[in-house]
Simulated scan of single mutants.
Amino acid sequence: MNTLQMNEWIGTASKPIIIAGPCSVETPEQLDQTVNYLVKEGIRIIRGGVWKPRTRPNSFEGVGEIALPWIREAKSKYGVQFAIEVASPYHVEKALEYGIDMLWIGARSTVNPFTVQDLADALRGVDIPVWVKNPVNPDIALWIGALERLNRAGVKKLGAIHRGFSNFNDSIYRNSPTWQIPLEFKTQFPEIPLLNDPSHISGKRDLILPVSQMALDLNFDGLIIESHINPDQAWSDSAQQLIPADLGKLIAQLQTRIATVNNPLLESQLEVIREHIDEVDRELLEVLGRRMKLVEKAGEYKKLNNVAIFQMERWKKVFETRPIWASSLQINQEFVKELYKLIHTESIKKQEEIMEGKLQESISRK
């Protein structure tokens, strides 16, 4: 994609970029007070929900376009830029009419290529920054596809927002961060600025700081955080919003890391460590290769004796014991569980191939 570099359109080359504001624009007073205090904390780009796509129809879905004059007044009064979510061509039309500076496409819209194409068509020929949130499900192709549709419509000022992914098994986060997906995105498209949305990942304010710091440690370009003058009285997502003063304290605690190493001595030391990592990786793969050879042996035995591939008791034993072994080696148990799920899937696949070979032999004899 032929996008512009971040500092050619974002308005500042400094990092991290911070966009903050209420989940929803509720009243003129709530917006004015929130923006007033955010500006005092140094925030120059405000976010606010005007139209809120909600899961249930009886939920608060935003006040709608009556908020747009309030936003225009706040922009004029405080000299800030403003970003809102759009989910239809009509939203785009009204946002442009009222001078909104940036748009974002939400996770529920990104998941639908028809919706994204409608938005891309509505933005054709418009010179405005557009941020695209990852889809609700962990599908990087949909995320990339949404950006490609916008880019083909002529939108060059593109950015991406990582807001986590739906996962009913996650007991910690509202939306699982699944960090490998945004990192893969950044690897493929390093020229596109990538923000993290710790509010939607966390779902509760006490997790916003560690998620934000993790994003900066992973070299994200910035953060988009929900902030409300009185979060406990917010009309939507009250648990994940910070008062502006607490947002200011959070920003002050964040540590930024250097993206590249310019110190020759440090680079030399890192290179030695990396060489050792490479050696260990080769050993790991050799061990994994030996394991797969044993899996093939087991498959041949099952094939000869007409035994089913999947043995529940065996799998339960593997899945129960390996995390315990990992713990004794100070390795994260959840990581090992996920690793062995992948290993088990590949093992089943290999044994299926052996069984298919038996079936083909039987067919050939006939």
Rank of each mutant, 00 (worst) to 15 (best):
N2T: 11
W9T: 06
K15H: 10
I19H: 12
P28F: 13
T34N: 03
N36G: 00
V39H: 02
K40P: 02
R47F: 08
P53Y: 13
R56I: 00
L68F: 04
R72K: 15
Q81D: 06
S88R: 01
Y90P: 01
A122H: 09
V130T: 10
W131Q: 00
P135F: 14
V136I: 12
P138M: 04
W143V: 03
R149C: 02
A153W: 01
V155Y: 00
G159S: 10
R163H: 07
N169K: 14
R174F: 07
T178L: 15
Q180G: 05
P182A: 08
T187E: 09
Q188Y: 14
L195F: 10
S202W: 06
R205P: 03
A215K: 12
L216D: 06
L216H: 10
D217Q: 12
I224F: 04
Q233A: 14
W235L: 08
Q241A: 01
Q241F: 01
G248F: 09
P264T: 05
Q269N: 10
I273S: 05
V280S: 04
V280L: 13
V280E: 10
L288V: 11
R291S: 14
M292T: 08
E296V: 10
L304S: 12
N305H: 15
Q311C: 03
M312K: 10
T321Q: 12
S328T: 10
I354N: 12
E356G: 00
